[in-house]
């Protein structure tokens, strides 16, 4: 809510009355936004800069003016002066629709606890990183790559939405199933020497390639 001050002529008398008011309640204007109604002033050019300075020196924070004559000069200087306040000094465009809540439209998902048996992590906007293990009977599904900083014992399904370049990384491979872009391998298909090793999986054509990382 803003207060409205309406200066009258003679301006000197009006300022005296204003000072009397301030002396009765010194914090009356503290922090309050004030709109200046200039409609009572004579229509010839007033001393705009002087009036602003004298109100400023009394700690009155002007956020806008109304009733001014279109021919007056110098009022436009007022707004920027107060733009640093907590309220906007100029009229602002109110958007018709409420702005969407700021989402961190992230292209990765971080899970910092183990993925337990029966749980399913599905992320369709990019990569998934898991700090912990993925249990037997759990699954991680991502449209991008999957990074597991633990043992992969369950299923990892990467490149869900047709991402041929997605990869799967894990610190220790004990997986039940790996899949990238629809190409899958079960535990039986995997080279037994890779079990228990840090491994990455990727696609070369329609073949799934597995190699150790160490």
């Amino acid at each position: 809510m803003a207060l409205v001050l309406a200066p009258e002529t003679p301006v000197e008398d009006w300022l005296d009355a204003l000072d009397a008011q301030i002396s009765r309640s010194p914090s009356f204007f503290a922090g309050r936004p004030v709109v200046l109604d200039l409609g009572a002033l004579p229509s010839e050019q007033p001393d705009v800069a002087g009036l602003l300075q004298r109100l400023n020196s009394r700690g009155i924070r002007i956020i806008g003016t109304e009733g001014q004559h279109p021919s007056w000069q110098g009022l436009e200087a007022w707004a920027p002066l107060h733009a640093s306040g907590t309220r906007p000094a100029r009229p602002i465009d109110v958007p018709d629709e409420p702005r969407p809540a700021p989402t961190h439209d992230s292209t990765s998902l971080l899970i910092d606890q183990p993925v337990r048996s029966g749980q399913s992590i599905v992320f369709e906007k990019g990569d998934v990183s898991i700090v912990g293990s993925v249990a037997s009977g759990a699954e991680v599904i991502a449209s991008g790559s999957i990074h597991i900083y633990g043992t992969l014992r369950g299923r990892a399904i990467a490149g869900l939405t047709g991402n041929h370049r997605a990869r799967i990384f894990c610190r220790r491979l004990e997986a039940e199933l790996l899949a990238i872009d629809g190409v899958y391998q079960t535990a039986d298909d995997m080279n037994a020497t890779l079990r228990g090793r840090p491994v990455q999986a990727w696609l070369a054509g329609d073949a799934m390639m597995l190699a150790t990382l160490d």
Partner: peptide
Amino acid sequence: RDSDRIIGMLD
């Protein structure tokens, strides 16, 4: 494995 499932449900 069943215990792992139950731990997930406890959480």
